[in-house]
């Protein structure tokens, strides 16, 4: 068994595992009941899946040119995926697109009710608490 066979095999395992993780993320995206739960599926297995696919690729390609690009792709994913999740979660919350019946505790609504949605930043992005789930009001003007 040569060194390159070992690397190829390891790369193949990484690719398969990564593909499975991405599949799991997709299944979660379909099966989870609301936007906020779906965000979990869209960020975690998906990120790990991508990392594994990138690792698999670098193990099989084995050139520095490929590895640097793949590292760059991975790093970009790390920086962007939490930001995207936060923006989606935040707008879902503000547009009352939240299944409150699935929440045991909701301290954001409490905090927003406490100080009227002003978050004290002065950057004009103060949020409003979501209304009850059976009154899905129109988008905020």
């Amino acid at each position: 068994m040569t060194w390159s066979t070992v690397l190829d095999a390891a790369g193949g395992v990484c690719l398969l595992l990564g593909a499975f993780m991405c599949l799991a993320g997709a299944v979660g995206l379909v099966r989870f009941p609301d936007t906020l739960s779906r965000l979990h599926a869209a960020t975690k297995p998906q990120t790990l899946g991508l990392i594994l696919v990138l690792m698999g690729l670098s193990l099989t390609l084995r050139t520095w040119a490929a590895v640097t690009t793949l590292v760059f792709v991975g790093a970009t994913q790390f920086f962007t995926s939490p930001v995207t999740a936060q923006l989606v979660g935040r707008s879902a919350y503000r547009h009352r697109n939240v299944r409150t019946d699935l929440l045991i505790v909701d301290e954001l609504s409490e905090a927003l009710a406490r100080d009227g949605g002003a978050d004290g930043d002065g950057d004009g992005d103060d949020a409003r608490p979501p209304a009850s789930p059976d009154a899905p009001g129109p988008l905020q003007p």
């Binding site: 993320g25 979660g28 906020l36 599926a41 297995p45 790990l48 045991i104 909701d106 301290e107």
Partner: peptide, 25 residues
């Protein structure tokens, strides 16, 4: 943590259980 998180979400994605969630400050 990322691996643990992915396994947790994966298990939940394939299980019939409906998750109970929370928003904390």
């Amino acid at each position: 943590d990322l691996v643990v998180a992915s396994i947790q979400v994966t298990r939940l994605a394939f299980s019939p259980k409906r998750p109970r969630n929370a928003v904390i400050e």
